[in-house]
Nucleic acid binder design. Structure first.
Lengths: 240, 240
DNA sequence: TTGCTCCTCACGTCACGTGAGGTGGC
DNA sequence: TTGCTCCTCACGTCACGTGAGGTGGC
């Protein structure tokens, strides 16, 4: 009793389309046909199909299966290489799961760098954006430092005031804020000295790094905020 | 200082082609251009690109990222679903790794069902083929029993003789072999009673199951071997 | 005639990658 | 002129899946 394509597929636990796909790749021999063109499979086809499925399930590509042919049933070297790939893959997926777990646990936004989902619920949009950019510019150890800094920081009234500063704030408001902001900023810089000389990310050129920080500040803070930052730096410089 | 496509890609740790791909999907806004048609990116584009990469790295599809839009940064439900998928994936990959490890350790062929790589080095091509087919017909508990049976069996001279029997063996040879094979076969059947009534695999119809076993025997054993099997069964029946 | 199975052929999926062919500034 | 970067557009990858359109036996 020969089998139809559907029956063969069912016996092998796969689909009709898969069987036809293997035909088109020359992996599985096309069987004889009845007068009306229906294909007729026998046990030989089933065995071959099961061999292909087995190798495919083990992660061997169809191209590799084709190049091995039906006889070579001991692809030791190929399997070793595949195993390494799978191991790396599992590691990556595990890391992703840990990230997701942390995000879900802390109900944290996803527009933050990896590892920043714990204890940083209070960040503004601009802060999250700049952290994302920093994660591409600074080394991972610097980012670790930065993360602790963000976690430590008590969202002071000065911070909130800075975030809320309108672009058209008048000179007096800006100067007053800068005078309160300067000591705050100084404290931050003193506790985290690497902020002064941004260590460029390995893959990015030094020229780009500077331009990125400039652009980021321009894009993420309004004119008044930038002015307050400049004034604060001047105050710090004058004191030093 | 605006950035070129290549610079933007480099800053985000990705490729030029990826950036263009996101443009084509409408995920990333196409920036203004210089007079010669070169694209000019700013920090806003970099932030958006990094957000997309972050979500993509977490396993969110580009279609989902597109449907979320730039504002919704808390895709809790989506992440939970993705996490389940990843967990299942890791489990599958772990099982595959265990299979590969066993195959490599025992230097076993791959044209055997899953779980059969230990201690079955002596099997003939036909045996391996029929085991593959059985793995689709019998329940996993029956296969477990079968595996132990295969592991236990000492490759007796009778087995070797049966495997080597030429298709055109004469009557005398076949009868002599059958008389030695029958007690061997009886012992196997008595130790493994489920062999008598093949429990059909859940997904395959009963009609198919019978046809498969018939076809498999036809295809995998030669005429003389089938004759010897029939004679052996007759001997057993006569004795019972 | 209706419903079911089988067939082939073309195109779609997913997230990009690979050229091909052309332009612009040094 | 050479070499480098940028651009667009078409097609390729991987392992199939999804129809479209047609045939054959009950």
């Amino acid at each position: 009793v020969p089998w139809s394509t559907r029956q063969l597929a069912e016996l092998a636990g796969t689909t009709v389309k898969t069987v036809r796909h293997y035909h088109s790749l020359g992996l599985l021999e096309v069987p004889a046909r009845t007068s009306n063109g229906y294909k007729q499979y026998d046990a030989g086809h089933l065995v071959r199909l099961l061999q292909i499925r087995r190798l495919s399930d083990l992660g061997v590509s169809l191209a590799q299966i084709a190049s091995m042919g039906a006889e070579d049933a001991e692809p030791g070297e190929a399997l070793r290489a595949i195993d390494e790939e799978i191991a790396a893959n599992i590691e990556r997926l595990r890391a992703v799961r840990a990230e997701i777990a942390s995000i879900v646990l802390h109900d944290s936004p996803t527009d933050l760098p990896a590892g920043f989902s714990e204890g940083v619920a209070e960040l503004s949009d601009a802060d999250r954006s700049i952290l994302l950019i920093y994660s591409r510019l600074f080394s991972s150890t610097a980012m670790e430092d930065l993360r602790e800094m963000v976690m430590d920081r008590h969202r002071t009234p000065v911070d909130a005031e800075f975030d809320a500063l309108p672009a058209d704030a008048d000179d007096e408001t800006k100067q007053a804020l800068a005078e309160r902001y300067a000591p705050h900023l100084l404290g931050v810089i003193e506790r985290h000295p690497w902020l002064k000389d941004p260590l460029a990310h390995a893959s990015t050129s030094a020229a780009l790094t500077g331009s990125v920080i400039g652009e980021a500040v321009d894009a993420l803070y309004n004119a008044a905020q930038i002015d307050v930052l400049a004034r604060s730096h001047r105050i710090i410089a004058d004191q030093g």
